[in-house]
Structure formats: structure tokens, C-alpha cells
Nucleic acid binder design. Structure first.
Lengths: 336, 336
DNA sequence: TCCCTTTGCGCAAACGTTTGTTATATTATC
DNA sequence: GATAATATAACAAACGTTTGCGCAAAGGGA
């Protein structure tokens, strides 16, 4: 089987000729920009509606230096915990983009490979970019900055100097920790993963902040960061049980999932023997026998907001440098 | 904060002028097409490598009637079961596209809304399309066919007449059912979901086919299709327990997950009291106490193959109309 | 040396839009 | 009714490439 051959498609010149007007008249009728007579415009629009004419995107791009595409940079993820987040980001960005006649061009790139991004920028295939994961030492941000292309990050950027949209991870974790502390839960352990990701730094800050508000500091022996493997988590959980932690605050559902399994295996009762909470609800624990206290963020809203801000930037509007979105603290059985 | 103003960027004419050659020489040096002297070409390439020049994609598109973009149509899904499938498809298509200097333009569209797709086609923003979910009564396929744009479907199309790539769902389900039958498991019940999706029709055919090979037919009372809600699944499971089904063959992990929970709630032992298998492994049952027999498909391979075939079509090559990819039958505890 | 073929490169048209400028027709002003 | 002001639409240049064609130089065979 072979691909179909290109069909001859109507150009603006065909429309102009068939209507006996100039191409500029047709162009201005469609865009509504410039001076154009009411009657002429109606005649052109009627003709187009009836006979069909669709502008050639490449020609428009060339003439206007505007692609009506936005680039969406996604990290390589493959855990069921991360997937829903980026999935929702993408859906939301796509939705907002479509609603504004933009298409999204998706680039998936791991850690440090900046070439796909550079290609997109250099070839001027997009009018702006949404970056969906930020690192402490981010290699994409400087590149984007230097390119002077409008961009917004979903997630915060070290040192600022970029338009950022994020869930208020710090505030949320702080509130969750505070609530636990106010319920007389002491000895709250922190189990964190990859600390190079900004989101994880924010969450940890929130944990510390809650103690700070009370003029206290958490017991350093209860703090585990950079738990990057199941075996590391296992070791941490075992140690924490020995250290009599009263609560295990997990940085995300990946860790939480593992913690819950380990505790179940060991026959530790939740919440009687130890309480458990997660800093990011991801649906993956929905089937778990007991319901888990967690933080809920509206990811679709996050994506929509980021995209909207980007579109405003592209339009040359003034936008806030940092937008933090609201969260919900969901208290469930696991911290009763 | 405001978006940066457009930077003046080097055009092919700048390069030509600075090198004292014509634009055609530069163009031919880069593309390698047409007659070009070896020395001149090297000089141009060296200059470009050192000073940087990146062709304007819009101008190229216009001149060549080629966008170097492919469209990827994703359905609106939000279950943890469906997500990994489309996620992997996207990653694979993106990977293959990047490797061939294409970018992917993602359109997310639910059921019957064909407008986003039409826009993409009419504006000629893509050279071809990958469609990632097919329905019995698919509204995208006729549209794509009529547009004469190259496209391939991931999933089969009723009535053929499209380039299709799919896991061999029918063959896989047939083999799984046959294996169970050969192990003296009788009374295999079938629990299926939305039958409008082609993938589900294929799986059901496989189930029937295994019986057919033996000159038999399954007990019609054990067949449930169109189980579209948890309550429907619950009712089916209860009835099947009464009807003494020996095995519950679930069309996918969404149904299987629910079935496993219901059985656990009711204290039914697997595999002693009833066996359970799923027609599509999705990782979601990984945490389940007992391991589950299922079919495993290589989704990345599926995506890569689909994309490769599309690229071949765009290049005007001959491609197979239907490609079915291999599968694995994974036997685990749940059917012991 | 002459003629023919090949090779290398420049010229200019084409791709399909948008948009600044100009010409013309219409209306308003006195 | 002449002139100024305005509204409308056409003209043509520009956007940055690719590519068919033509010309000159180089190479080859007699």
C-alpha cells in the first residue's frame, strides 16, 4: 500500500481570482485586521464557508513569523506514579492550546539531552515552550533563556528569573506537617527521593517550615532523602521502625506505596503502630485497603494556567513571574 | 515579566553573502542534493558548524510542501490502566520521529470530535498521522482516507482499507484460552468491556477461536460483554460464581483489577476456587498479592513500528497493509 | 586544437501568505 | 460644485527556503 499523492488544494489566490478581488482583500477579510468593507468581507466569508478554503500554515508562519505551535517538553518517566502527572499536564496544555488555535509539539527528553530542544528553537517551529519538570541544576532553563523564546516552567526554578507556575508544594507540605503536629503526632519522619528535582526540594522545605513555625527542628535522624531505590526505602523503613518514628511522611506515592507494602509485610498496623502520609496523591493507592492521608493538587489547572500564561507572553502581555496554585490536605485513615 | 523580543537570526542569505556564494550553493551543500563541488561543500559546512545556521522550518515547509511533522492522535483516557498504553505509544512514536528528524504534533480528542483533526489536515501542518485507537464505527478513518494524507492506525480497522499496525490481540487471546483449555480448565468465562473498540472485538474473537479450534463453543451464559461500570462487573462476578465458572478471563486489567478485588472481598480463593487471567498486562496489578496470568504486548515496539511505517509511506515507499506484532503469554499463580 | 560531455555554481522563479503603500471611489464640508 | 477627508481595495514587496535552468569552466577523446 502506498501513501496518497498530494492533492491540489485551494490557495488564497484561487479564492481571490474566483471572487474577482485581490488576495489582500481575502486575507484581510479572514483576519479582520486592516481596513475592509463590510459587504466585501461578508461576501468573502460566505464564499469561503461554502467552498472551503484553509490557509497554508507554513506560508502564514513565514509571513507572520508566528507558528501557532507551542512546544511541550516532557521528561522520560515510566512509573505509574509519575505518569498521571505528566499525562494531565499534557492534556491540560493541549486543551488550552486548542482553545486558542495553537497546536502542541511534544518533545520527550531525558535528563541532559538538550538537542531536541535546541532543534525546536533553532528551526523556529514553536512560538513558546512549556517545560514540565525542573531540576536544581536545570540545563533547559538557561538554554531557553538565552534563546529569548517565551517559556514557562511547571515547577520552580532555582534562582528565579523565569516564569514559573507550580502547585504550592512548600505550603502544602507545611500545612500537612503542621496539621499532624497539631494533632500531637510527634517524631514525624521524612522519606524523600531524588533531591535534584525542585518539587522535592519544595516539599522538604515545607516539612522543615512546619517545625520552624513552632520554633522547632525535626529530629535529623528521622530524615531520609535521596531514597532512589526500593532497597534504600526498605532500609529506611526498618531503621525508622527501630527509631520509633510515629509517622512516615512520604515525598510521593512511589515511596508511599513501597512503605505501605513493607509495613504490611512486617505486620505493622497503620495507623495504630505508625502513621503514614504522602505528599502527592496519584491515584495509585486508591485500591489500598486503608485510605491514605495525602496532598491533592489540581494538575489540570496547573497545565491550563501554565499554557494560558505562555499564550499571554506570546501576545506580549505582562505576566506574573511566579504563580502558586492551591492544594487540598486530605486527611484519611492512615493518620487517624 | 514579558516575553523576549524576536532576535534577528541568520538566514541562508546571510550565510551565502558572508561566504561569497549564492544561496543555492548553501542550500545544496546542506541538503547534499543536486550538483555541488566537494571543496565548496566542505567550506560551507565548516562555516555553518562554526558560526551556526539553522534553516527556518516554515520557509522549508513552504518551499518543499513538507512539514517534517507527524500528527499523533490520542484519545481522552484517564484510567491508570489505559494510560501506560498511550503513554508508551507516544514515547515510541516520538522517539522514532526524532530519530528521523520529525517532530510530533499531539492532538487529544474524544470520541466524535473531528475538528482538531480537520484543522491539522486542512492547514497542512503534518505530513502524516498516527491514530492510536480505533473503533468499530470510526469517524477518524474515513476523514483521513478522504484527505489522502498518509496515516497508520495503531489498532485494526473494520473493513480494512487502511494501513494498520497492531499487537496480535486475536492470536494472543486465542493462545491464552487454548493453553487454559489444554490444562483442563473448563468453563472459562469471558468478561469484556466496551465492544466498540476494535481491540476488544479482537480479543473476544480470540477467545471464541480457541474453542472453535477444538470444534466447540463456550457456554454463552459465561460470556459478559460491555461491562462498562464497576457495578456491572460486580453483578457479573456474582453470577459467574453461582454459575460455577472455573476461570474468569478478563478483557483488560481494568476489569481484572475489579474482579480480583471483588473475589478478595468475598473470600474466594485464587486459583483454588476460581482462576483469573487478564488479556492485557498493564503493570497496575504488579502489587497484587498473587501474580496474575496475562498477555504481554510490547507497546514501545508497536509505536515504533507504526511510526516507521508512516515515515516509509511519507517517503512514497510500499508498506504492508496490516502488521501484527508478537506477544507473550505469561502464566502465573492466578491460573495454577 | 577542437568539440562534446560533465561538473560546479549563480540566477530567478516559485511556494502561499501578510501588510505597508498607493490609487481610486465615496462621502462630507463649505 | 469644488475641495478636502475618508473609506475601500489593489499593488507589490517581503518572509526564507528550494530547485529548474542556463552558462562558464574543466575534463576527455580524437
Amino acid at each position: 500500500m502506498k501513501g496518497g499523492e498530494a492533492e491540489r488544494v485551494k490557495t488564497i489566490q484561487d479564492v481571490a481570482r474566483e471572487l474577482g478581488v485581490s488576495t489582500s482583500t481575502v486575507s484581510r477579510s479572514i483576519s479582520g485586521k486592516g481596513r475592509i468593507g463590510k459587504d466585501t468581507r461578508e461576501r468573502v466569508m460566505r464564499y469561503i464557508n461554502e467552498n472551503g478554503y484553509y490557509p497554508n500554515a507554513a506560508a502564514q508562519s513565514l509571513a507572520q513569523s508566528k507558528t501557532n505551535n507551542i512546544g511541550l517538553i516532557l521528561p522520560e518517566v515510566d512509573t505509574l506514579v509519575d505518569m498521571p502527572f505528566f499525562h494531565s499536564c499534557m492534556y491540560a496544555v493541549e486543551e488550552m492550546a486548542q482553545a486558542n488555535d495553537y497546536d502542541i509539539l511534544v518533545v520527550i527528553t531525558s535528563g541532559k539531552d538538550t538537542r531536541p530542544l535546541e532543534r525546536l528553537i533553532n528551526n523556529r517551529k514553536v512560538d513558546g515552550m512549556v517545560l514540565t519538570r525542573t531540576y536544581e541544576d536545570d540545563c533547559f532553563v538557561p538554554l531557553l533563556k538565552e534563546s529569548r523564546i517565551p517559556f514557562v516552567t511547571i515547577g520552580q526554578v532555582k534562582g528565579g528569573e523565569a516564569v514559573q507556575v507550580d502547585s504550592d508544594n512548600t505550603g502544602a507540605c507545611m500545612e500537612l506537617t503542621s496539621v499532624l503536629l497539631s494533632k500531637k503526632v510527634g517524631r514525624i519522619a521524612y522519606l524523600g527521593g531524588n533531591m535534584e528535582q525542585m518539587v522535592n526540594q519544595c516539599r522538604y522545605e515545607g516539612y522543615l517550615g512546619a517545625y520552624g513555625q513552632l520554633g522547632k527542628k525535626p529530629d535529623g535522624k528521622l530524615v531520609y532523602r535521596n531514597l532512589n531505590s526500593k532497597t534504600m526505602i526498605e532500609k529506611a523503613v526498618e531503621e525508622l521502625l527501630e527509631k520509633k518514628a510515629e509517622c512516615m511522611l512520604c515525598q510521593d506515592d512511589f515511596i508511599c506505596d513501597e512503605v505501605l507494602h513493607l509495613l504490611a509485610e512486617k505486620g505493622v498496623n497503620i495507623p495504630e503502630d505508625v502513621k503514614v502520609a504522602s505528599c502527592h496523591y496519584s491515584r495509585i493507592l486508591d485500591n489500598y485497603p486503608i485510605t491514605v492521608t495525602s496532598l491533592k493538587f489540581d494538575i489540570m489547572q496547573l497545565g491550563r494556567t501554565a499554557c494560558k500564561i505562555l499564550l499571554d507572553m506570546i501576545d506580549g502581555k505582562e505576566v506574573p513571574e511566579k504563580t502558586l496554585l492551591d492544594y487540598e490536605v486530605i486527611l484519611k485513615e492512615s493518620t487517624k
